[in-house]
Every structure is written in structure tokens, then in C-alpha cells.
């Protein structure tokens, strides 16, 4: 924990300096009753919040539970989700820092699946927030309120999803946009490209089909007592009757 230790020491040295900006000191009157209000915010740890707790440094295993799922998040109010987002964000930053620190020191980063768990939670949270916003917009305006987009063809003539953006100028006046975005225009070169591209796709498909066919024959030869229903379920496009008629079907022996 080279970097972490350095930052920890610096924080200890300048601890008072860094905190001063955010702490208000109120001069107390003599003989007044001092009551301390309950603080719900987490303790301020400066840059050390980017690192894990000190007892976990250099550990082999850090056990954690699973990610939050959507059903659980749907029970929570908007404020709770807002707070949870920042908890997750801080946790992700901490994990990324620890991962990089482990990499720098050529050490093992314990339980890297923690990162995925946090990211899955964040994705689920975003999905739940979008669900709520969509419901509101559909009730009020009849539209989803999502960022609009459409499936168009790019300069090569391949389909892609174009995400629309907001501009201060209408399309015909926006020269910059016109230069940046070039959509499909039918011409000779494009036609030649697409012909070859589609041929490639077609051949890939055909080869995959042939591969499946041969694989099924291989399976039939190796496992004569196989569950045929399972075979059909796994390879629905292979004609079994045709496969059994193939010369590859059956072993290398003289027929009786």
C-alpha cells in the first residue's frame, strides 16, 4: 500500500487544514448548556475515502453480499435512491483505486467481483429511475420522455441506432452537423461493398449450418443411445433424417 500510506500520512499532517473549509466553528458563550446535535453524515476522511478500510489492506479475501436488484429498489423513495447512488459511486471509486493500487504493486486485488456487484446495482438503480420517469411522462404527455433516436443506415449502409441530440439551430441551418453526420447515400461503391458484405454474412450462416450438421452426425456416432428430443432442442435447424442418410453416419466397420 505505497500510495495509500503516503496519502494517509499527508492527510494526517494536513488534516486540520483540509477540513477547515467545511467545518464551522461557533464560539460558545460561557455557562451556556451545550447540546450536541446528532450528525447523520459519515465521518470525513479526506482523500482516504478513496481507499478501503485500513484493516483490509493486503487481505486475501474481502467477503461481500450480492448486488441490489430492481425489486428491492422499487420499494425505495427517490431520496433514498439518490443517496444510494452516491454510496455506490463512492464504493466504485474506492474499488477502482484499490484495483489500480494492487496493479501498481503487482499484488492480488481481492474479490474483483465486488466491482461488478456495484456496477450491476448502479445499472439497476438507473433502470428503476427511468421506469419512474417514463411512467410520469407517459401519464402527462403520452410520450416516454426518453432521449429520441432511430435506426438508420451509416455511410457504409449498415444499420445502427442514431441517438438524437438537442441543437439551437434547425437541421438545414446547422452546417457543422451536416458535415459531421454522413448517412447512407446510394452509390456504386456502396453497392459493391454491401453486396460483398451480405455475401460474407450469407456464407457465415451457411458454414455454421454445415458445422452444426456435421457436429450432430459426430454426436450420433459417439452416443447412439442419446436423448433425441434433447438433440432436437439444441439443434433445431438440423434435419436428423438427412443426417442419418449421410455417408459420415455410422462407424468404420463392414456392414452385415
Amino acid at each position: 500500500m505505497g500510495t495509500a500510506n503516503k496519502i494517509f500520512n499527508i492527510c494526517k499532517l494536513f488534516g486540520n487544514l483540509t477540513v477547515q473549509g467545511s467545518v464551522k466553528t461557533v464560539p460558545l458563550k460561557p455557562f451556556s448548556i451545550v447540546t450536541r446535535s446528532i450528525s447523520t453524515s459519515p465521518p470525513l476522511k479526506d482523500l482516504m475515502e478513496f481507499f478501503d478500510q485500513k484493516d483490509k489492506w493486503g487481505g486475501i479475501e474481502v467477503k461481500t453480499g450480492r448486488a441490489w436488484n430492481k425489486e428491492e429498489m422499487r420499494l425505495k423513495s427517490n431520496t433514498d435512491l439518490h443517496k444510494l447512488w452516491y454510496i455506490l459511486l463512492k464504493e466504485r471509486n474506492m474499488l477502482l483505486t484499490m484495483e489500480q493500487d494492487a496493479k501498481d504493486q503487482v499484488r492480488l486485488f481481492p474479490n474483483p467481483e465486488r466491482l461488478d456487484k456495484v456496477e450491476i446495482s448502479m445499472e439497476n438503480l438507473e433502470a428503476v429511475v427511468r421506469e419512474r420517469n417514463k411512467a410520469y411522462h407517459q401519464l402527462e404527455t403520452g410520450e416516454t420522455g426518453e432521449r429520441p433516436g432511430k435506426v438508420t443506415k451509416n455511410a457504409f449502409g449498415l444499420n445502427y441506432y442514431y441517438k438524437m441530440s438537442e441543437y439551437p439551430l434547425p437541421k438545414h441551418m446547422n452546417k457543422k452537423w451536416q458535415q459531421k453526420y454522413r448517412f447512407f447515400k446510394h452509390d456504386k461503391d456502396n453497392e459493391a461493398f454491401l453486396l460483398k458484405y451480405r455475401e460474407k454474412l450469407y456464407l457465415n450462416k451457411k458454414r455454421q449450418k454445415a458445422r452444426n450438421f456435421n457436429h450432430v452426425i459426430g454426436l450420433l456416432n459417439r452416443f447412439p443411445n442419446m436423448d433425441i428430443a434433447a438433440l432436437k432442442q439444441q439443434y433445431p435447424d438440423v434435419d436428423l433424417e438427412k443426417a442419418k442418410r449421410s455417408r459420415k453416419y455410422g462407424g468404420h466397420f463392414v456392414p452385415k
Binding site: K63, T64, W68, E72, R74, N78, H82, R132, N133
Partner: peptide
């Protein structure tokens, strides 16, 4: 584990339906 959210916190229902978006709320 110390960083896990406890069951009673997870199952607590704090959602209240409101006619506004997340951001407005």
C-alpha cells in the same frame, strides 16, 4: 458482512407515489 445492507433496511418500504419525475422530486 460489515458493508452489507441489513435485511430490515432493504425490505423497508419508503416509496410513496407522487406525480413528478425523479429529478423534480
Amino acid at each position: 458482512q460489515p458493508k452489507d445492507t441489513t435485511t430490515d433496511v432493504v425490505t423497508e418500504i419508503t416509496f410513496e407515489p407522487k406525480l413528478c419525475t425523479f429529478e423534480m422530486d
